[in-house]
């Protein structure tokens, strides 16, 4: 379970271009469920995800992951959280160009020093499962939009992350691919994972498998639906 207590985030604090991206947020995110943040652009969804995912620190307030307070912990610990607890699917996917799909998928495991053959097996299995088995040795820049997204999901899951974070995952996908994505997400939830994503796509927050939709406006939570 993830909970946030009066979390605020200021960018460029104390400077003329100061921006308050989050204002006094109190929130609980249920484990083993799919939670979607919706809201207009600039409402603070991405900022919230980056704080939940230990990518950035809140300016004030506290963040707990599974009962442990992670805000204010040293960088090394946050890195470890990102490596082991969270898997990220970025808005722009951020695969490393010039490397193959397989190499990209294996990247988050590098700092852990696992057995290479076993890791490779695991990565190939995951790619197979996501229908990318044949593309494992292809360079990522040659993948289509849907394939890139699935490669990013495979990378996010390589360390068996309990919590998957996805920022606008379906922004550039057609309806069929969006459905495919939702199926994958449902399967991950059924495996016992927590999925947190943002979207301003009605196809997402109207989907049956979404457990909670949280609406944001101007850095505040303006509504929550189960």
């Amino acid at each position: 379970m993830i909970s946030l207590q009066s979390v605020s985030k200021l960018y460029n604090e104390g400077r003329p271009n100061e921006v308050q991206a989050l204002r006094d947020i109190d929130l609980e995110i249920a484990p083993r469920a799919v939670t979607v943040f919706k809201g207009p652009s600039g409402s603070g969804k991405t900022t919230l995800l980056s704080i939940v995912g230990c990518m950035a620190r809140p300016s004030t307030g506290r963040v707990f992951v599974d009962g442990q307070m992670v805000s204010g912990l040293p960088e090394k610990f946050l890195t470890e959280q990102r490596r082991t607890t969270f898997g990220f699917v970025f808005q722009r996917f951020n695969l490393i160009r010039g490397l193959s799909v397989l190499e990209n998928v294996m990247l988050p495991a590098v700092p852990l020093g696992p057995d290479h053959a076993a890791l490779r097996r695991r990565a190939l299995d995951r790619l197979e499962q996501l229908g990318l088995g044949a593309k494992a040795d292809m360079k990522v820049e040659y993948l289509s939009g849907g394939e890139t997204q699935r490669a990013a999901i495979a990378r996010a899951l390589i360390n068996d992350a309990r919590i998957l974070i996805a920022d606008e995952p379906t922004a550039n996908l057609d309806t069929e691919l969006t459905h495919r994505f939702l199926e994958i997400v449902a399967a991950l939830r059924d495996e016992g994972r927590t999925v947190i994503m943002t979207s301003h796509d009605p196809r997402i927050w109207e989907a049956d498998m979404v457990n909670a939709v949280i609406e944001m406006q101007d850095g505040r939570i303006s509504g929550a639906f189960a």
Binding site: F88, A156, N159
Partner: peptide, 11 residues
Amino acid sequence: VLKAIGWDSSD
């Protein structure tokens, strides 16, 4: 990107 997916500065 590497740092975001869990690489440490030392990595």
